[in-house]
């Protein structure tokens, strides 16, 4: 009877000691994304268009060099058609039927010239994974009627042998960089140089557009924000003058208290058993 009482007290002391060390945790639950974000990039020189999605006019008089969106589209197949402004969908200049849009993705649909100079539509899936703190993502897409190219930053090739309709990408230190595009393996500048401001925690997507032959080479840029990560921590003190909480002796004292209670209880119990 007495023993069980004291055991309870001892146990209570131990629980109290643990409770002081407890810290509340914060958990964030990501929202479920059922739709995809879709942007449209216009990279065909001198050709403003109307854009139809599933037979419905979505963009009116969409101009070369412009970026539209992002639109939230549910997962599924879409018919995309481009017409000259004001013309009926029946006389579309470019058409893609049943373009598959997956769920939860970030997609850019580029209307551009292929390497031979013919208009085409290419979907790109954008890498919207987080970048490390202090970093920015640079994505370059070759969507011009031009041969293989290298992309240089500060005069040094960073992406080599890029061909239409492909992309190259990398996460780099955020900040300003002077970039240009040269014919692969040469110093012959095709586009640029241009100053790129790569903002931390964003993806900058640069499309090379136009035609080398038509001397209409140019760039279109699209920026995706919100890819930043927090720093790994905020270390801001190593002096110890502001320390709170308990010292080692506190644990010794608590441990001794618990042992004394247990020991005393056990002795008392054995003493009683012995008397019986």
């Amino acid at each position: 009877m007495q023993l069980s009482y004291f055991r309870r007290v001892a146990a209570g002391g131990a629980v109290a000691a643990l409770a002081f060390a407890g810290v509340g945790a914060f958990t964030a639950t990501p929202a479920y994304a059922a739709t995809s974000k879709v942007s449209v990039v216009h990279g065909i020189p001198d050709t403003p268009v109307d854009v139809y999605v599933n037979g419905k006019k979505t963009l009116d008089n969409f101009k070369p060099g412009d970026v539209a969106g992002p639109l939230n589209l549910e997962e599924g197949d879409y018919d995309i058609a481009l017409t000259k402004p004001g013309e009926p969908i029946g006389s579309a200049i470019l058409k893609v039927d049943n373009a598959a849009v997956p769920g939860g993705a970030n997609i850019s649909i580029a209307a551009h010239l292929d390497a031979a100079g013919q208009p085409k539509i290419t979907p790109f899936v954008n890498d919207v994974s987080k970048v490390d703190a202090g970093k920015a993502r640079l994505i370059v897409r070759h969507t011009a009627a031009a041969p293989e190219v290298d992309v240089r930053a500060g005069g040094t090739p960073v992406f080599k042998n890029l061909t239409n309709p492909n992309e190259a990408k990398g996460d780099v230190d955020a900040g300003n960089v002077k970039a240009d595009v040269v014919l692969a393996g040469t110093d012959t500048v095709a586009i640029g140089p241009a100053d790129l401001n790569l903002k931390e925690g964003t993806a900058t997507i640069v499309y090379a557009i136009g035609s080398a032959e038509g001397k209409t080479l140019d760039v279109v840029a699209q920026t995706i924000t919100g890819l930043h990560s927090a720093p790994g921590g905020v270390p801001s003190g190593d002096g110890g003058q502001a320390g709170t909480g308990v010292n080692t002796w506190w644990y010794v004292l608590t441990g001794a208290g618990v042992l004394l209670l247990l020991g005393g209880g056990v002795r008392m119990a054995t003493a009683r058993t012995g008397r019986k």
Binding site: A16, G257, V258, L261, L262, M268, A271
Partner: peptide
């Protein structure tokens, strides 16, 4: 002796709790 140990234990835990 057992009672003394119990009392000391309670005292130690009381002080520890107050300090905490």
């Amino acid at each position: 002796g057992a009672l003394a140990a119990l009392a000391a234990g309670v005292a130690a835990l009381t002080v520890a709790t107050l300090v905490a």
